[in-house]
Design a protein around this nucleic acid. Structure first.
Lengths: 351, 351
DNA sequence: CTGAAAGCGCTTACAG
DNA sequence: CTGAAAGCGCTTACAG
């Protein structure tokens, strides 16, 4: 337990018999450019190994260098208590790419205010500047803080489509519009005339893009295929067998369900209503169940890929390689057909 | 997009007509100590507000030593691909306490080597020093790296019981030994004479402590209650209805299952064997299902509480308040009785 | 090929 | 009551 003082570059320099600046050069691979002889480099590296040298990130960062840190920020809590973490797969992807890129991740927990929301500047100081850049995700957004961040020239990217007046925001989004076309085709091909779109009450960017994409696809094919839709915004507890029966009675023969938690509730409700999919009702989910055992045909939002892509994009922004605005679309997978069938001709049993 | 330079203390000082040092004093609430007049303070605060001043963390950190960062390290991957993340609840707890303590979290992704393992010094530099201290968790351990870390005087705590020769490691563990006593009592009280302990093949610290605790509790009450046990180490796919029948035929009337994934498999297998719990077989799980809908009575490993406690402990270590060695036990909750009944008198149906 | 020096933005004794 | 100065550990021109 020697508790030896943490070595700094000057310690290495002394041991290797060179100047501290030379140590820095070798460390930063500027050795070749500065024509430092291989033997000197080896001596320096040996000294670094012997003393167990590790750069002081704060000093590097202050000097203008890189910290090797990628920030992850949400304007709400990162690890929700709910068992099905919406952020989970994004984080997995971010982490994977961080591993591949040799970066570490900073989760900004200190920015959380008593009300549970998170603020970049709320604590009085922008902790984010510790990192070389940040990936920002989540439902909430705060245009003022985003604008200020951009104004400071801090590199960041969003997961999900974001637009803030006067700021060019690089973001990664899934190509919902493209993914919705096959969904609409599938339903139209099967002969459906009216579909109910079961939407989540929390209208985050991802949710809205799905609905917009769906309606756009519908409009595009509207002329040729006589498929209409109605939208219902429901919370999970509201998705009951009663509701399912009402949907059928109202004339819908298919349901497009927006999120995996609604899909779970819908599956239960359909069972409770004594209906069978796709015999009595066709269903497509616009989100894969993270548990991997979703009841319905679905398109899968490629969250993990989006997380990976966000880090790649951020790294490019940090390098200054990206002329904003730039978005990096990620394709969704098309749905399979198993829970889509022909429209039911008979009305379902009432109560 | 003014890209106005980020204001620093000297900018405020100029605007307020004071020196930069005075700005620093006001900022750090040393104004009173230094008897700076209220009017001057107000002028300074007004200037800070006007320029939107935010302290530079890197500079503060460089000067003061603290980074406000808590490292989280595992010797294996942090975010496994498996849907049921073993680390998940620990991380939730760590994050919660970080929020409460105003610290940020660093996930060391850069330390991952191509084989998927993670090494503190493997990359040539100890990135961990970037943080004020670290919480280390997971199955794997690397005594050499731990020893070196301790030798450097770097503050860290473990989640899970760890012992390394020559190093006093502060850790947080659940009090498995204490939690096993009621489990054994429950089974003995119900009249069971032989119980099968279904153990996970991955013998991590937590697993071993559970088994040790169980056997210790058995030994303690062994004289008075005639309860014997046999241990079977099985992977999830090996937990079949066949196996369940074999267990019953061999004379066990109860099963203690070590982990939640084994518990899930066991539930399916028992159903497949046509048996009912607790009528034909009593079962206790030694781990709560993260999904929250486990089939059996269980004791719950307080992972979230352990995560929180680990951060608290780490902060104490960082402050130098803790005379190592120290362990912070966390109690398990006792099991309820609903899936424990009297031993079945009849043998189960064969095939 | 290598070193001396400036400076990143801050805090903290230390003088006035 | 306030300012000038040192120094935290680094990187990067700039001289030799």
């Amino acid at each position: 337990m020697s508790h030896s003082r943490i070595p700094r570059q000057s310690d290495i320099a002394r041991l290797a018999g060179v100047s501290q600046a030379t140590v820095s050069m070798v460390l930063n691979d500027r050795a070749a450019a500065n024509r430092i002889p291989e033997t000197t480099q080896q001596r320096i590296r040996a000294a670094m190994a012997e003393l167990g040298y590790v750069p002081n990130i704060a000093a590097q960062s202050l000097r203008g260098g890189r910290s090797g840190l990628i920030g992850v920020h949400t304007f709400e809590r990162v690890f929700p208590t709910a068992p099905d973490d919406y952020y989970r797969e994004f984080l997995n992807g971010i982490e994977e790419q961080a591993v591949d890129s040799g970066m570490d991740l900073v989760l900004f927990a200190s920015t959380q205010k008593p009300d549970g929301t998170r603020s970049i500047y709320g604590s009085g100081s922008n902790r984010m500047r510790l990192a070389d850049g940040a990936v920002i995700l989540g439902f909430e957004k705060n245009d003022d803080e985003i604008r200020r961040l951009a104004d400071e020239g801090f590199p960041f990217v969003f997961i999900g489509h974001r637009e803030v007046d006067g700021v060019d925001i690089p973001f990664v989004t899934a190509d919902y519009a493209a993914a919705m076309a096959p969904v609409v085709d599938l339903l139209a091909d099967a002969g459906h005339r009216e579909v109910t779109y079961l939407a989540a009450p929390l209208r985050g960017v991802a949710q809205q893009e799905r609905l917009d994409g769906f309606e756009a696809a519908l409009a595009r094919t509207g002329a040729s295929r006589a498929l209409t839709h109605r939208v219902e915004v429901l919370a999970v507890p509201e998705v009951t067998d009663e509701w399912v029966r009402a949907v059928c009675r109202a004339g819908s023969t298919a349901i497009v369900v927006e999120t995996f938690d609604l899909a779970r509730a819908l599956s239960t409700a359909i069972d409770a209503a004594g209906l069978r999919v796709p015999r009595d009702l066709s269903v497509i989910s616009l989100d894969a169940d993270p548990r991997g055992d979703g009841a319905f045909s679905h398109i899968a939002v490629p969250r993990r890929a989006m997380g990976r892509r966000a880090v790649e994009l951020l790294l490019a922004v940090i390098e200054g390689h990206v002329p904003p605005p730039l978005s990096a679309p990620v394709h969704c997978c098309p749905p399979s057909t198993s829970t889509v069938g022909a429209p039911s001709v008979s009305l379902p049993p009432t109560a």
